[in-house]
Design a protein around this nucleic acid. Structure first.
Length: 704
DNA sequence: GCCAATACTTAGGAAAATTTAG
DNA sequence: CTAAATTTTCCTAAGTATTGGC
């Protein structure tokens, strides 16, 4: 189908016999009954440029989904099959070259703009826009109902066949990134002082100075490294006169600038409703125009379509580069990735892209090189997109394959503790830590380029202490190190004697700053894991242990007799067990104590409960209503107590990270179905979008 | 085997939005 | 209504893992 102009004549009989149901009830559904054994899938979506497409695609009813493909993943492995289909599941073909796609205007015989082989038959007509704008106005009156239509139109990519290994898409079109707004010079009356005297800065120097001024309240602007890095980079932006005048950061007075920004942000808060509305609308317009792309016939949300604005770099923890200037990204820095046959995004007037490439082996739309670490940054799709969702699903399938062989692997590494080879022993002990404690792999990092943090393979002697006996336990290892994001990992763990002895051996004749596993790195470890199971890497253990823990904990903690809030507390506790395992911490909220007090004060005093109990003399009706009142209050009390407990236990623990990245969502979905918990109690809107695949496919008997 | 480059996932905190309390 | 509390979203840093060239 190379010819982009599709002759519709031959298809006419399809259309005419379809038209009635299509415009009628079946328009709202996904499948139109066309003949006894034949269905047409209808779907509709908006494209940039404001066209509504209605897509018509033949399909067999029983053709449901395929599991995510992992190289040679056995087919018997935990995929979801349609309940209607027990024998070999037919895979619904990917929407592809020979699709027939029509706008709803076809009937009217609009202006035909047939499109490329893989794409669409577009019928462009002013009516399309009319319908669109009408649609847009409706929500004003009917905002609450709006989601219904959208929900029904959601594309179930998980019911479709996957692409061959390595190919990420066939068609990709987008509008390019949104750049940071240009610098707006300060008003004349906002002054910068050097050595007590007013000094007018050049625009470039002033811009960088504002970055510092905006951070003045932060503790890190007092740090030696921050100030040194900042000052060095700031001077690069100065004119030669400025450079010769401004030689000492301590003589710089940014306070006036800082006050100005505070006033600005205060003013922003005080803005009228209309002004706020205007800003909101502008953001929505931006999102609508740049926030989506078309990837393989579907409009998909982009995660980060805005280019990171310039500013001062502040890494996490004790970062050697804190305070450095993160430079402004220009179109000339940008590499665009899209299809050859797509409309290539235009660079801003007077500018050029660094490069436009057409690489469908990668998922990113835009990339640039950042100047602090020299690393590449990408614009990619939202977690709700097919390309991210498929990968996520696959991740959990890999973890489930590990479940099947984890016992074997555990036996293996226990054997390896006795190996003659030092390398093998180190590998086995490291793997034991990764498995038991859910430690991260621990790649090597370039010294002096980043904060000093470690993972398993990069642990140093100074990070552990060995206690032959501690608090009545034998062979205790005390871990104390900074992990990812400089979050402290502190744990005292009793280990098996062999592990303990091995650790003693590894530490012999070493300095505190020497590597604990000097014969090991992540690449050696992962190569070994690859031999044990296809697709196995160190991080799969984290996923596996997190998910299996959630499943076990849910089984253990859920009390069938509990009401919904109590069951949710159990869920959160199971989630919490995982977060603790993965060491997902957070700074306790600033208002924690106070909000805890507030909660306590809301608990109705016991007197209220007792007082509600009616004396026996009361009429039957009164007794009943009083009883109900008591019940209501008790329920309320219970809810508050549960809430208080939950919050207290959660003080320093972040549940979000594990929920989003480590827990197979099908476990949660199944649990909700089993106990009649609405999914909204567990997942918010974003999370439901990300996990749409799991919500759609998992039944209550799902086993991880 | 080693290194640099690349691509992609995971992470906590800040800011914005929404909800609740007063 | 306003303000405070809480939740959600945004932001982008910081990890993991693979690959390809030597």
């Amino acid at each position: 189908m190379q010819n982009p102009h599709v002759d519709l004549e031959t298809e006419k009989w399809h259309i005419s016999s379809l038209w009635g149901p299509m415009m009628g009830s079946t328009f709202r559904g996904r499948h139109a009954h066309f003949a006894d054994d034949y269905f047409l899938k209808l779907s509709c979506c908006w494209f940039p440029g404001n066209f509504l497409f209605l897509k018509v695609e033949p399909c067999f009813f029983a053709s449901f989904c395929s599991p995510p493909r992992i190289k040679d993943e056995p087919d018997d492995d935990g995929f979801y099959a349609s309940p209607k289909e027990d024998s070999k599941p037919l895979k619904r073909p990917r929407e592809d070259d020979d699709l027939l796609v029509l706008t709803h205007l076809f009937k009217g015989g609009g202006n035909t703009v047939a499109c490329s082989n893989k794409f669409l038959l577009i019928l462009q007509d002013s009516k399309a826009k009319k319908v669109k704008s009408k649609d847009k106005k409706v929500p004003e009156a009917d905002k609450r109902k709006k989601p219904k239509k959208e929900e029904e139109q959601k594309w179930k990519w998980w019911e479709e066949e996957r692409y061959p290994e390595g190919i990420k898409w066939k068609f990709l079109e987008h509008k390019g990134p949104v750049f940071a707004p240009p610098y707006e010079p300060l008003p004349e009356n906002v002054k910068f002082y050097y050595d007590g005297k007013v000094m007018k800065l050049s625009t470039k120097a002033e811009e960088v100075a504002t970055f510092f001024a905006k951070m003045l309240d932060h503790e890190y602007t007092t740090k030696e490294i921050f100030r040194k890095n900042f000052f060095k980079d700031w001077r690069k932006e100065m004119t030669s006169e400025e450079k010769s005048t401004i030689t000492n950061l301590s003589k710089c007075d940014f306070t006036h600038m800082s006050q100005y920004f505070k006033a600005q942000s205060e003013a922003r808060k005080q803005m009228s409703k209309e002004e706020k509305q205007k800003i909101k609308e502008e953001n929505e317009r931006l999102l609508k125009e740049y926030g989506y792309c078309v990837m393989d016939n579907h409009k998909e949300r982009i995660a980060n379509f805005k280019i990171e604005p310039p500013g001062l770099f502040r890494g996490r923890g004790n970062h050697p580069k804190m305070g450095m200037l993160k430079r402004r990204i220009m179109p000339e820095d940008i590499i665009i990735n899209c299809s050859k046959d797509s409309k290539i995004p235009a660079p801003p007037p007077g500018h050029k892209w660094k490069e436009v490439r057409h690489d469908n082996k990668v998922t990113w739309l835009v990339s640039w090189t950042e100047n602090i670490q020299g690393s590449i940054k990408y614009i990619m799709l939202n977690p709700s997109s097919r390309i991210k969702g498929e990968k996520d699903w696959q991740k959990y399938e890999t973890a489930r394959r590990l479940k099947k062989c984890v016992d074997k692997i555990r036996n293996q590494y226990r054997e390896d503790w006795k190996s003659k080879e030092m390398k093998v022993r180190q590998r086995a002990v490291a793997l034991y830590f990764i498995d038991k404690l859910a430690l991260r792999a621990g790649n090597e990092k370039e010294e002096g380029e980043t904060a000093d943090t470690v993972g398993c393979c990069s642990l140093r002697v100074e990070h552990i202490k060995l206690h032959p006996e501690l608090d009545g336990q034998e062979y205790v290892v005390e871990f104390d190190f900074l992990g990812k994001d400089s979050i402290r990992y502190y744990n005292k763990v009793p280990v098996e004697k062999r592990v303990f002895k091995n650790l003693q051996l590894f530490m012999e004749n070493k300095q505190p700053e020497d590597d604990l596993f000097d014969r090991l790195n992540t690449s050696i470890l992962n190569k070994h894991l690859q031999d044990l199971m296809e697709g196995l890497t160190a991080k799969v253990f984290r996923t596996y242990n997190a998910s299996i823990t959630l499943q076990q904990q849910l089984k253990e903690l859920t009390n069938p007799d509990d009401n919904i809030p109590a069951k949710i507390l159990s869920y959160n506790r199971a989630n919490r067990a995982v977060a603790i395992l993965c060491n997902h911490q957070r700074a306790p909220p600033k208002t924690f104590e106070k909000s805890m007090m507030n909660l306590q004060s809301k608990v109705p005093p016991p007197a209220q409960l007792r007082g509600s109990r009616a004396p026996s003399a009361a009429s039957q009706e009164t007794v009943e209503s009083k009883k109900k009142a008591v019940q209501r209050i008790e329920e309320q009390l219970m809810k508050l107590e549960v809430q208080a407990t939950d919050r207290e236990e959660n003080k320093q623990i972040a549940l979000g990270t594990s929920k989003l990245n480590y827990l197979d969502p099908r476990i949660s979905v199944a649990w909700c179905k089993k106990w009649g918990i609405p999914i909204e109690k567990i997942y918010n809107k974003t999370q439901r979008e990300k996990f749409a695949w799991a919500i759609d496919m998992a039944e209550e008997d799902y086993e991880f």
